[in-house]
Design a protein around this nucleic acid. Structure first.
Length: 866
RNA sequence: GGUCGGUUAGCUCAGUGGUAGAGCACUUCGUUCACACCGAAGGGGUCGUAGGUUCAAAUCCUAUACCGACCACCA
């Protein structure tokens, strides 16, 4: 083993990653009889590069996989990538434009060619970066959502739903992104409140009998107005319904109609109706049978004939407002908070636009998914997310799946001359379905990216073929992801999985926390608040980064990343490294023989190991990694290093103790490394490779989880040794009180009481030459009482008496206050009557101890004051 | 407007009914003998606020304030 006192992650990590891969450990073992454990990872976008969120998400899956592998499962983690329609198309478009090439001039086929080229060159950067994190995924099975087999799965799903009537074509108001020039689904949009204006505009009656004042936040849409609506119960307008109004600036006549939609309380109670550019107005338009003129093109420029033709939305608004004011139609303009909808991808304000799109009916697909979560067949962790899921599923709306893009799965619908259409795997198949009618074109749109990623758990296992993988590994075990895509992805996988495989796609959904900056902001490249994980790995290693994030991941919804925390993780790695160096240097390279009789310290650490394993095992099992890391850290640093190793030092020079001490040290280290391995795979593998244990596994990665016998548990040893340590701590504190340097050996300490077999431990750990029973011969002493034992250190006149007295008095005051509280409770008859007997007993013991120590302190003060 | 989180030591966070915990920071001390990315000792909190339940509340209930996330068609 390297003799460096600093753990050097960089040389260790890549070495072991390659060794594991060469040994085939990332692949399923295929061992008959082993239970299968399967994860299909959330496929990152080909445009992605590693960020802190990934550094939590993918190591989480790796951790679970490594844990389950050690627990005897046949683990398979299938990686892959998502073609990410909108994201990729915009990245490639930008690059082409930078080269002076207009995508529109390039044409569809050339553009797709270019995109594939780009994907081949730089599209799998992120997958390579997952390797740096130590992720044990089976790269030979990596899938891409545009692979031939995957495409077939996507088209098969589409055709099936199309033929069942679950997919339909319809003119609806969709969220139109005027920059990307495509529709996006509701969940791909963001809502934002901004300060806007509310414009009050007069619409005169055609017959000159007055006017109606409407309020609008978007005056430019008046070019598409087809009516003004009022509530039927609104007395202000009841006698005027059906009359015609003149649309200002345009001059067109539009009716005043009655509809349930307007709220009489808001504004004037009259609403202008623009069915093609507002979802609510569209509903009114449908109910009232109104025309629905579209007044903007795909880039949100005005296409209505007239003076505003060709203007952008914002330009048109300015001009229309000015014209309305100039011509006296504007009544007033008020400040008003308005909710706008932005495109998640481009950040552009969405234009609600009436257009022809493909939709999937959702209600009947949602039912079985809701049932699966309600019955507990699918379990969310943390549990609270099942409510989030159910709320959305129970109010689900139809899903717009067509996107006006080139990069993606082209919708497999083929049209004949007369406009009838057929869904088919190919043009030829469509022609066959069409019979005598001639197929003339394929639909131009592609499918929403989430339509294809919704098939991920089963399409990656070979569906629609009836593969062995599918039979053995579906449903998969756990899905680990971010809460942001519960609707976009998790819900879709559940619905699609149940519909096409008749079974849920996974039994567990583990929603991990979001990694934020140190001050709680979103990590974002564009804001410059992101931290590049590859740089952190270069500095402190993947294991330390994994520990940094995983040790903070539990039920919380947020993790704040800070460099300071990475130092803790690095220090922990270093501590493990050095403690292991000590163990190996002390034990030597040859495997040890059978241990002799274990002493109480041995039994204590082994019992602590046993308790730690129980906690860690349980915490991993419920995806609470914080709860696993804390006991691992505490056990290793504060129990194993601070006490066991310190106590082992003298034992290694004693031939009678050497073998047993070494055996215990190795047993504990071996189990500890295995328990830590899922979090820190490389460091644990490196140290494990040096452990002189006969017949150990080739790799810690393929070793079994430590199954510790119940005989390791020893509460008596634990409490007895804990008592010794209390005495040591009290003596050390006493030494500090009289200003004796740490570790400088004091010749003698005197005691009255029962040391309970702890003499040797106390002497060596409190750095005292000899412990003498009885009173101190010296006249000047410092004393303390702990665990019922009075300890006295002779001070030979070196003591600062006033300081010592002050110290004792402060201590006594604190104890007296505690005692008062305790006695008040013990004197309360209700407490004595109703509290659990063990609680009362414990309180009595503490009270007696306090009283004793206060008494002893008083005596000491009296002596010192003389 | 609705739902769900959070509010505990200077900072970041554990802690689901029985005398408040960790890491870091801070103070004092310590250089051969695994580790200064270390060791020893110490200071520091009326657990957001107000009520309630209970012998006993950081912990359970109710209300409220602030922070955050998500959902929601008011022109």
């Amino acid at each position: 083993m390297d003799i460096s006192t600093r753990y050097d992650a960089s040389s260790v990590e890549s070495k072991w990653y390659l060794a594991w891969e060469q040994a085939g450990l990332f692949k399923e073992s295929g061992t008959p009889g082993k239970p299968k454990f399967t994860i299909t990872i959330p496929p990152p976008n080909i445009t992605g590069s590693l960020h802190m969120g990934h550094s939590l998400c993918y190591p989480t899956q790796d951790l679970i996989g490594r844990f389950m592998r050690m627990k005897g499962h046949d683990v398979l983690i299938v990686p892959g990538q998502d073609h990410a329609g909108i994201a990729t198309q915009s990245v490639v478009s930008k690059q082409l434009k930078a080269q002076g090439i207009q995508p529109s001039e390039l044409g569809r086929e050339k553009f797709i060619e270019k995109t594939w080229e780009w994907r081949d060159v730089s599209g799998d950067t992120i997958i390579k970066q997952f390797r740096m994190l130590g992720c044990a995924f089976d790269w030979s099975r990596s899938r891409f959502t545009l692979d031939d087999e995957y495409v077939k799965a996507v088209l098969t799903v589409f055709i099936d739903w199309y033929e069942k009537g679950l997919i339909y074509r319809g003119k609806r108001i969709v969220n139109w992104d005027p920059v990307l020039k495509t529709s996006v689904s509701d969940i791909e949009t963001l809502r934002e409140d901004i300060k806007g204006k509310l414009y009050h505009v007069r619409y005169p009656f055609a017959d000159g009998s007055g006017e109606v004042i409407i309020a609008t936040t978007r005056p430019e849409t008046m070019l598409g107005d087809v009516a003004v609506a009022v509530h039927p119960s609104d007395a202000r307008y009841s006698d005027k319904i059906g009359k015609k109004l003149i649309l200002p600036l345009v001059g067109r006549e539009i009716p005043l109609v009655a509809d349930q939609y307007p709220d009489p309380e808001f504004g004037t109670g009259a609403v202008k109706i623009t069915p093609a550019h507002d979802p609510n107005d569209y509903e009114v338009g449908m109910r009232q049978g109104l025309p629905m003129p579209v007044i903007m093109d795909d880039s949100a420029k005005i296409i209505a004939e007239g003076p505003y033709f060709g203007l952008s939305r914002t330009e048109a608004r300015k001009r229309i407002v000015a014209d309305l004011e100039e011509q006296g139609f504007m009544v007033k303009i008020e400040d008003h908070n308005i909710a706008i909808i932005k495109s998640d991808r481009s950040g552009e304000i969405i234009e609600p636009l009436l257009s022809e799109q493909w939709f999937v009916k959702q209600t009947e697909l949602a039912g079985p998914g809701i049932a699966a979560v309600k019955s507990g067949e699918i379990k969310f962790t943390p549990e609270r997310f099942s409510k989030v899921f159910l709320d959305w599923m129970e109010n689900i709306r139809d899903w717009c799946i067509s996107r006006q893009l080139w990069w993606g799965h082209r919708i497999p619908v083929y049209y004949t001359e007369d406009g009838s259409h057929f869904a088919a795997l190919s043009w030829d198949e469509a022609q066959a379905k069409a019979g005598d009618q001639k197929i003339v074109r394929q639909d131009d749109d592609v499918l929403d990216t989430w339509f294809s990623s919704g098939l991920w758990p089963f399409a990656t296992l070979g569906w629609p073929e009836k593969t062995t993988d599918l039979a053995e590994r579906y449903p998969t075990s756990v899905l680990v992801t971010d809460r942001n895509i519960i609707y976009l992805w998790v819900a879709r996988m559940i619905m699609m999985g149940i519909d096409f495989c008749d079974q849920i796609p996974f039994t567990d959904v583990c929603i991990h926390a979001t990694v934020m900056t140190e001050d709680g902001k979103r990590m974002s490249k564009s804001l410059g608040t992101g931290v590049d994980p590859t740089e952190v790995i270069a500095k402190i290693g993947a294991d330390a980064l994994r520990y940094t994030l995983l040790s903070q991941a539990g039920q919380n919804q947020e993790i704040r990343y800070s460099e300071r925390r990475t130092e803790d993780a690095r220090n922990f790695c270093n501590k493990i490294w050095n403690a292991s160096r000590f163990a190996l240097m002390s034990i030597g390279e040859e495997p040890l023989g059978q241990p002799g009789e274990l002493n109480l310290i041995d039994k204590w650490i082994i019992s602590r190991l046993y308790e730690t394993e129980k906690l860690v095992n349980e915490a991993y099992g419920k995806y609470d990694f914080q709860q696993a890391c804390a006991p691992l850290y505490h056990f290793f640093w504060n129990e194993f290093c601070d006490w066991y190793i310190e106590l082992s030092k003298s034992r290694f020079s004693d031939p009678a103790e050497r073998n047993t001490t070494g055996w215990v040290l190795l047993t504990v280290l071996d189990s500890f490394l295995k328990m830590l391995h899922p979090v820190m795979p490389h460091l644990t593998e490196e140290i494990y490779s040096h452990l002189p244990i006969a017949g150990k596994s080739d790799f810690i990665m393929s070793a079994s989880w430590p199954e510790l016998p119940e005989s390791f548990s020893n509460p008596e040893a634990e409490s007895q040794v804990a008592g010794w340590f209390e005495m040591v701590r009290a003596l050390r504190a006493l030494r500090a009180d009289i200003d004796v340097d740490p570790k400088k050996v004091i010749p003698a300490a005197y005691y009255i009481g029962d040391l309970r077999g702890g003499e040797d431990v106390i002497k060596s750990q409190a750095w005292i030459e000899s412990l003498v029973a009885g009173a101190s011969p010296s006249s000047q002493n410092a004393g303390t009482t702990i665990e019922g034992v009075d300890f006295v250190l002779p001070t030979d006149g070196l003591i600062d008496i006033p300081k010592m007295i002050a110290k004792l008095q402060a201590e006594s005051e604190k104890m007296a206050a505690d005692l008062v509280k305790l006695e008040a409770r013990l004197n309360n008859p209700m407490f004595v009557e109703r509290a659990k007997p063990e609680v009362i007993e414990k309180d009595r013991e503490i009270a007696a101890d306090l009283a004793d120590r206060i008494q002893k302190n008083a005596e000491r003060i009296a002596v010192l004051s003389k």
